[in-house]
Simulated assay, not measured.
Amino acid sequence: MDISVVVPLYDEVESLPELTSWISRVMDENRFTYEIILVDDGSKDGSWEMIRKLQTGNPFIKGIKFRRNYGKSAALNTGFIAAKGNVVITMDADLQDSPDEIPELYRRINEEKYDLVSGWKAKRHDPLSKTIPTKLFNAATRKMSGINNLHDFNCGLKAYRGVVVKNIEIYGEMHRYIPVLAKWAGFTKIGEQVVEHRPRKYGKTKFGLSRFINGFLDLLSIFFVGKFGKRPMHFFGLLGTLSFFAGFFITVWIIGEKLYNLAHGLTVRQPTDNPLFYIALVAIILGSQLFLTGFVAELVSRSASERNHYQIEETI
């Protein structure tokens, strides 16, 4: 099968007929073999009933229905598991992503051998309350991930080699950082394509301001797990050692100062009267705790079933 189109949706009953018809027309015009996987994330507006109706007229449509709303990451992850295409395309269900972009995305994966091609909505039809925070997050993600050639990590319109989606796991709000997950999994040929961003035709956006806070926390999680997931002691142990020795050297300084004053008949103050005493105490305690945290994290890591799971591209 050439292409799997994965579409997560939540209360998008009005847009589904037009979207699926548009996708099918593009596929037929380009003679692609395909499937459309519609993942209903707990809709309450009749979206699932519409999917059933559409499926009777189009055997290439497949539906997955959640019992409740789990979020876009869960919907995408489930769609990736079900996808059978050599190339997987993701797009939103609100008609703001154009299916006319599919042939070029497919060509770049199939012919230019990209692992992932992410859309860039250079001209957006969103309010400033959404575009400005998005630009800040994209800048932070580029800085932390080292993927400097992407302008819009969160664009819903993306194309992947099938093997990529089978080797990444998405949860929480991590759908915003799929290129980062792909890079950590060893898929480093990541490209970008300018795509059309259409005004929303039906309904209203389902995302609130809380997504920016959750997105930032997930970015920190991705960075930490990707870099130190299999060696947590290197992170906690280093911080703990630095903190402990900083406290130790401050303690030595306080003792040395007291001995010097005693030897020269100078006024000797109590250690507790010196602010450095409390700084040293906190540093030693914090360092010990961080070091012990590293030991515990290392034990957990070594006991995990994924401790020796690595991405293998090929064997002969």
Rank of each mutant, 00 (worst) to 15 (best):
Glu104Gly: 03
Phe244Ser: 11
Phe235His: 08
Glu14Leu: 06
Lys227Tyr: 03
Asn148Met: 09
His309Asp: 11
Gly247Gln: 05
Val39Ser: 01
Asp41Thr: 15
Lys135Leu: 11
Thr241Trp: 11
Gly265Asp: 08
Lys53Asp: 12
Phe223Arg: 06
Arg231Met: 06
Gly240Trp: 05
Ala297Thr: 00
Asp41His: 13
Ser15Ala: 15
Arg200Lys: 13
Phe153Ile: 03
Leu105Ile: 10
His125Thr: 15
Val7Lys: 05
Leu259Ser: 10
Thr90Leu: 12
Gln55Ala: 14
Lys113Leu: 06
Lys158Glu: 08
Glu112Asn: 15
Glu35Met: 01
Arg107Thr: 06
Asp41Gln: 14
Phe245Gly: 02
Gly146Glu: 09
Gly146Met: 04
Asp115Ile: 09
Ser118Gly: 09
Gly46Ser: 03
Ile168Tyr: 02
Asn86Leu: 13
Glu111His: 08
His197Gln: 05
Pro103Tyr: 09
Ile178His: 05
Phe207Glu: 10
Leu16Asp: 03
Phe245Asp: 06
Arg231Cys: 05
Gln55Leu: 00
Ile51Asn: 06
Asn69Phe: 04
Glu306Thr: 01
Val117Tyr: 15
Val268Asp: 07
Trp253Met: 08
Ser210Ala: 03
Tyr10Val: 07
Leu292Met: 04
Thr90Ile: 12
Arg200Met: 11
Asn58Ile: 00
Leu238Met: 13
Ile285Gly: 09
Arg67Tyr: 12
Pro103Ile: 07
Lys201Cys: 01
Ser243Pro: 02
Ile170Ala: 07
Trp184Ala: 13
Gly237Pro: 08
Asp218Thr: 10
Ala185Lys: 15
Leu220Ala: 09
Asp126Glu: 10
Thr134Ser: 12
Ser43Val: 06
Lys121Glu: 14
Met50Pro: 09
Ile37Asp: 07
Tyr114Glu: 06
Phe32Trp: 08
Ile285Trp: 12
Gly172Phe: 03
Leu292Asn: 05
Lys123Ile: 07
Val165Asp: 11
Leu116Glu: 03
Thr315Lys: 06
Phe248Gly: 01
Arg107Lys: 12
Ala83Ser: 14
Asn86Val: 00
Phe249Lys: 02
Thr315Ala: 11
Leu286Phe: 14
Leu259Phe: 15
Arg269Asn: 07
Gln193Leu: 12
Gly63Ile: 00
Leu290Cys: 00
Pro133Leu: 10
Gln96Glu: 14
Met144His: 04
Val268Met: 13
Leu276Gly: 07
Ala139Cys: 00
Asp126Ala: 04
Tyr278Pro: 06
Glu49Trp: 03
Gly208Met: 15
Leu238Trp: 02
Thr33Asn: 05
Leu16Pro: 04
Lys206His: 15
Arg231Glu: 10
Gln311Glu: 09
Asp218Ala: 14
Ile61Ser: 00
Ile312Gln: 14
Leu128Pro: 10
Lys44Thr: 14
His264Met: 01
Glu196Cys: 06
Asp273Gln: 15
Ser301Lys: 06
Arg25Cys: 01
Ala263Cys: 12
Ala263Gln: 10
His197Lys: 14
Thr78Tyr: 12
Leu150Pro: 05
Ala122Gln: 09
Pro59Trp: 00
Asp126Phe: 02
Phe66Cys: 02
Lys113Val: 09
Arg52Phe: 00
Val164Trp: 05
Lys189Ala: 12
Lys65Val: 08
Thr141Trp: 00
Ser210Trp: 04
Ser301Phe: 03
Ile178Met: 05
Glu196Thr: 15
Lys53Ile: 10
Arg142Lys: 14
His309Val: 08
Tyr106Lys: 14
Glu169Ala: 03
Gly240Asn: 13
Ile284Gln: 08
Leu276Ser: 10
Gly287His: 04
Arg269Cys: 01
Trp184Phe: 11
Ala140Pro: 04
